[in-house]
Write a protein that binds this DNA or RNA. Structure first.
Lengths: 209, 209
DNA sequence: AAGCCAATGTTAATAATTTAACAATAATCA
DNA sequence: TGATTATTGTTAAATTATTAACATTGGCTT
């Protein structure tokens, strides 16, 4: 399987999320245009993405929800499950940890890290919290591949450098500090202020006050 | 000023954030390639975006940091400040509220909403929390234009319908439920699971275990 | 002060992404 | 059963976004 465009990967994740909702609703089949409508995109987009991953429905009663969930999993999930840690278990860190609960998928949240003595060595939002001094040991012991960074900005660069040195291969950075990582490490950054400012801009431009 | 592409708006927000960091570092001028490097994009991208907003540096000693911050503000901020509310003041809601603290900009977080009796009528992360029953009154009284949605998924659709009915013009949806809003209301959605799955996918594809 | 250098603004080219168009085909129904 | 409809997979076109190319210009050097 050729490497997919990032945009397509994102949508596949969204398709799966939506399909799982369908299962909840006891819907076993879904048309491309239904799936599209739920995600505010076009049916062509859906069909094209599924084409890219080589999925065919055969039936004309829409896609088999369960089957498609599986197919998407085969593409975007890793063979065995991958371990994840949240670094900085403040409000955002706990929110992230909460999102993992009850979520299927091959991603296991196996640890969090923080320095607050109130938190260290306790289970918070379902994950054990370790002190930063244990980070090297735990990354190796638990085979952690992905770090979700929710630390205060001042601390972001330092901790990133460490996690990378200790073997982390992917970072999702929620801090406001842009990071630099060596090649071979995948970095995804998200700044919620940017999203809010974007909303504000388009609200302003609509001028429907 | 013509309406800008969403991508450019996002980058402008990021430019400003970076420029504010520059001020912290007592840097008063910055070259396009410096700014670009900090954000992992190209210098051409920066120059092109600035061209779009009609900014010229005149100097060849880089952009005047303060001036550029102002210019970006003139483009992406609204004339008077715009009021924002966080709906659902759980972990994620508190994290969002925390991000607002110490942030300049024309966006004021003026309220949060929740139904937990532990939270209602108290100040949490710097904002007063109101019960959902007050939502109509407060949106109008405080002239709230933007809602940041951080409620449990089951509640997302219902509360969205209400906020829109009561006059909200922009929604940033952090829940896992895709929303539908009438035209005239701007909707931005972000699902952190998608980001994490994207990271996992590219880690897997790199295959540098 | 003349000439070089470095950085900019802008147009043109390229690449990526989305959308449109349409042929193919299973399901439906007269 | 045969025609019709609805939906799919896929190629081609259009759009959007990024990058390259380059002329311009202020500053610096000698």
């Amino acid at each position: 399987m050729m490497k997919l465009p990032g945009k397509t990967v994102e949508r596949l994740s969204e398709y799966r999320r939506t399909l799982l909702e369908c299962l909840n609703e006891k819907r076993n089949f879904i048309f491309s245009h239904d799936l599209a409508a739920r995600l505010h995109i076009t049916a062509v987009q859906v069909r094209r993405d599924l084409m890219l991953i080589g999925y065919s429905s055969v039936l004309r009663k829409g896609y088999d929800v369960r089957e498609l969930i599986d197919t998407i999993g085969k593409i975007i999930d890793s063979e065995e499950s991958m371990n994840v840690a949240v670094i900085g278990i403040g409000n955002l860190g706990r929110a992230v940890a909460g999102y993992f609960k009850g979520k299927r998928s091959k991603l296991n949240l196996v640890a969090s890290f923080d320095n607050d003595p109130q938190k260290v060595n306790r289970v918070i939002s379902g994950v054990k919290c370790y002190p930063y001094t244990d980070i090297e040991r735990m990354i190796k012991e638990l085979d952690i591949r992905i770090a979700i960074l929710t630390v205060p900005p001042d601390f972001a660069r330092e901790i990133t450098e460490e996690t990378v040195r200790f073997g982390i291969k992917g970072i999702l950075n929620f801090t406001t500090i842009p990071l630099n990582v060596p090649s071979g490490v995948y970095l995804e950054e998200y700044d919620m202020i940017t999203s809010i400012e974007k909303v504000a801009y388009f609200v302003k431009e609509n001028k429907i006050y």
